[in-house]
Computed example of a mutant assay.
Amino acid sequence: MLGWNVAIPEVDTGDDIFVVQDDNGTLRRAQVKTSTSTRRESGFSGKFNVSLKNLRNITTILVHYVFIVRHNDEWTKPVIIRQDYLLDHFEANHVGSEANGNLTFYFSYAGGRVECSGQDFTKYVKDFSDFPQLYH
């Protein structure tokens, strides 16, 4: 819908989708994480696991993590966060919990806000800033 071409890699090495801007070759990598909601006293939450090794593997083409929760038979708006930002949230703000080489993130949805480990992630909801609409 935004004018980018999407491709699914033949081999899964941590990237679920490649997104390409044809006219200039701009490439974006995406890792899609889905969860089924858990009801909470106020709102709901979704649990996601991310490989710490993959998160720390910063290359010239950053991964965009896309977190989506299935709630009441509908998908939430995606939380889209660049790899370096998510790593910074983990290292500097102690977002998520580490066990066995994985990070577990619990996103809570309530009152129009999305939080993870007490940090406001609402600004990442539908953050397509690295995927501007293209007109062909």
Rank of each mutant, 00 (worst) to 15 (best):
M1A: 13
M1N: 08
M1I: 15
L2H: 04
G3T: 11
G3P: 02
W4C: 07
W4E: 13
W4Y: 09
W4P: 10
N5Q: 12
N5W: 05
V6K: 07
A7F: 08
A7P: 00
P9K: 03
P9D: 02
E10G: 02
V11H: 12
T13P: 00
G14Y: 09
G14C: 10
G14M: 09
D16R: 08
D16H: 05
Q21Y: 12
Q21D: 14
D22W: 03
D22M: 08
G25P: 04
T26D: 13
L27S: 12
R29K: 15
A30I: 15
Q31R: 04
K33R: 09
K33Y: 08
T34G: 04
S35K: 01
S35V: 04
T36C: 00
R40N: 14
R40T: 05
E41R: 07
E41M: 05
G43Y: 03
F44G: 09
F44V: 03
S45D: 10
K47V: 06
K47S: 05
F48P: 02
N49T: 07
N49Y: 08
V50Q: 03
V50W: 03
L52D: 08
R56H: 05
N57G: 02
N57D: 15
T59I: 07
T60P: 02
T60H: 11
L62E: 15
L62T: 13
V63L: 08
V63M: 04
V66H: 06
F67K: 05
V69M: 04
V69Y: 03
H71G: 00
N72H: 10
D73H: 11
D73C: 01
D73V: 00
E74T: 14
E74V: 12
E74S: 11
T76V: 06
P78F: 04
P78Q: 13
R82A: 15
Q83F: 11
D84Q: 09
D84W: 02
Y85I: 07
Y85K: 14
L86Y: 06
L86Q: 10
L86T: 04
L86M: 09
L86V: 02
D88V: 01
F90N: 14
E91S: 10
A92N: 10
A92I: 00
A92T: 00
N93T: 00
S97F: 07
S97N: 14
G101V: 06
G101E: 06
N102E: 14
N102W: 05
T104M: 10
F105V: 01
Y106E: 14
F107E: 03
F107T: 11
Y109S: 13
Y109D: 12
A110G: 02
A110I: 00
A110R: 00
G111D: 09
G112C: 12
G112W: 06
G112N: 09
R113N: 09
V114N: 07
E115A: 13
E115K: 14
C116T: 05
S117N: 00
G118P: 05
Q119V: 15
Q119K: 13
D120Y: 06
F121C: 08
F121L: 06
F121M: 12
K123Y: 05
K123W: 01
Y124S: 10
V125D: 03
F128M: 06
F128N: 05
F128W: 15
P132K: 14
Q133K: 15
Q133C: 01
Q133F: 04
L134Y: 12
Y135I: 02
Y135H: 04
